[in-house]
Amino acid sequence: MKKAALFLFIIITQSCFKKTDNVVKTDDQVLKATTNAIELVEVSDSVAKDLKSFYTSYISENAKNVVDRSFLKELKNKYVTQSFLNKLQKLELDYDPFVNAQDYNSEWIKNLGIIKDNSKENTYNVIITDNGVRTNILLVLKKEQNQYKIDDIANLPNNTIVADKIENYSQEEVTGIWKTVCQANKTALLANDSSHGYLDVYINNDYARVAVEIVNNTDVKYSVLTGITRYNKFVNWLYISNDSIVCKVKRTNENELELEWLGFYNKKTKKREMVKNPFNNEIKTNLVELRKCQ
């Protein structure tokens, strides 16, 4: 009888161990491989799921040849607190702190690990593995309206904050050449000074240059058509109002500009033409972030 009971105990014990092992294997296996048996994030951890969703989308978009910066902005607004986004704008970093790198690789997603740090409150460790080299990003979260958002990066260098350099970029002049990508034949805002400039508009093989007036470093108004390709027909330039705002701009930092596209106002039809944003023809959004190219 004792032998039978002992045999039954061994079978039950082995069965339990097998079940636990199956749970580990059906969970995110990369965590087991990269953390050396450190506590795994369970599937039921909704916060870890949100972080993985954020990092999957963030890495995937940044790894593209043409990056949709308006999408990235919406993504950050969804998963990152505004206070931390404001803090990042005051940093002088030559890398992306969310991935601790300057470049991106979509292969990172395959080996992406999210681990809860139980020794610290609301803290998660993001593990990115690149060619066998592991990078750890320690995220500190904060609950806002029933959702946990990234509120800080614990291993972010503290000496990069410029405490004595408080700049309101939204009031800065927009002088310079601004594009989504610093390449030729791309729609651009060319601001000669704080009040005058040009819009170079490229759509397919057509091109137009219009002179614009910049008001309060914010409103860009159409003035006059100054150049056009022979078969350019995407706007009825004869009736375009020279007192209407074509787009709105706002400096977000030293080398980036946020542009909201409105289109050219036709005073005859009382409707806007070219409402599709020419700065990014592939994406249906009127909001786009531009880089300073010169």
Results as ranks from 00 to 15, higher is better:
4 A>P: 07
9 F>I: 13
9 F>S: 10
13 T>I: 15
17 F>T: 11
31 L>G: 02
34 T>K: 05
36 N>Y: 12
37 A>I: 15
37 A>T: 15
38 I>Q: 08
39 E>C: 12
45 D>K: 02
46 S>F: 12
47 V>I: 14
48 A>I: 00
49 K>C: 11
50 D>R: 05
50 D>K: 08
58 Y>R: 01
69 R>G: 03
73 K>G: 08
73 K>N: 11
74 E>Q: 11
76 K>L: 06
78 K>I: 07
85 L>R: 10
88 L>R: 01
92 E>W: 10
92 E>F: 10
93 L>M: 05
93 L>A: 04
94 D>T: 08
96 D>F: 02
97 P>E: 02
99 V>R: 00
102 Q>A: 11
103 D>I: 13
104 Y>S: 03
106 S>C: 11
110 K>C: 06
110 K>L: 09
110 K>T: 08
111 N>M: 04
118 N>F: 08
123 T>F: 04
125 N>G: 04
127 I>Q: 00
129 T>W: 03
129 T>A: 07
130 D>I: 04
132 G>R: 03
135 T>W: 06
138 L>M: 12
141 L>N: 01
143 K>Y: 11
145 Q>W: 14
146 N>L: 15
148 Y>D: 03
149 K>D: 02
151 D>P: 04
151 D>C: 08
153 I>V: 06
157 P>S: 05
158 N>W: 14
160 T>G: 10
163 A>M: 15
164 D>S: 15
171 Q>A: 14
177 I>A: 09
179 K>T: 02
180 T>Y: 03
185 N>C: 10
187 T>Q: 03
190 L>E: 07
195 S>P: 08
196 H>W: 13
215 V>L: 13
219 D>N: 11
225 L>D: 00
226 T>G: 05
226 T>D: 08
229 T>F: 04
233 K>D: 14
236 N>T: 13
236 N>M: 13
236 N>Y: 13
242 N>V: 07
247 C>N: 02
256 E>M: 13
257 L>N: 01
258 E>M: 12
258 E>C: 11
259 L>K: 00
260 E>Y: 13
261 W>H: 02
268 K>Y: 10
270 K>H: 10
271 K>D: 07
276 K>P: 04
276 K>I: 09
281 N>F: 13
289 E>Q: 15
